[in-house]
């Protein structure tokens, strides 16, 4: 079963670029190790970090003229998507286990951050008809 794990930045705590360098390094190392473990367990499909919300653009097609483009960040949303994984694992339970692990990435002082991770199953092909 494939799942998308979406890591949200909850808009709480100090911005990551203001962290003590050793804490930032521990956080980055944790993410590398997490991805490596996913590869080694045969569950890794894809992982990407996203550029910051400052560079985001919201695009809407408009009738009769060019599209409306709004530059980010968008004041109405404090939360934003920081990155995502696609994993292929055996069960939803296993996906929850992995999401919980990612959520516990170390923050300032090495304490677990409890990052909100949204877990969504990736749509697949139908079961065979009976």
């Amino acid at each position: 079963m494939k799942f998308m794990m979406m890591m949200h930045y909850a808009g709480e705590g100090p911005a990551i670029h203001t962290w003590p360098p050793q804490d930032l390094k521990a956080h980055i190392d944790f993410m590398h190790a997490f991805n490596r473990q996913l590869s080694e367990s045969g569950e890794f499909v894809e992982a990407h970090g996203l550029a910051g919300p400052e560079q985001a653009k919201l695009v809407r097609a408009r009738k009769g003229s060019g599209p409306a483009i709004t530059d980010g960040p968008f004041p109405e949303s404090k939360e934003f998507l920081a990155g995502f994984w696609i994993i292929d694992c055996e069960s939803e339970q296993r996906a929850i286990e992995l999401a919980a692990k990612a959520s516990a990435a170390p923050g300032i002082g090495g304490a677990a951050m409890s990052i909100p991770i949204e877990l969504r199953q990736v749509m697949c092909a139908p079961d065979p008809e009976a």
Partner: peptide, 15 residues
Amino acid sequence: AFLVPEATMAQRISR
């Protein structure tokens, strides 16, 4: 066939 990277499948087979 399973739409996963080759390295992931190699790992599964070796495990």
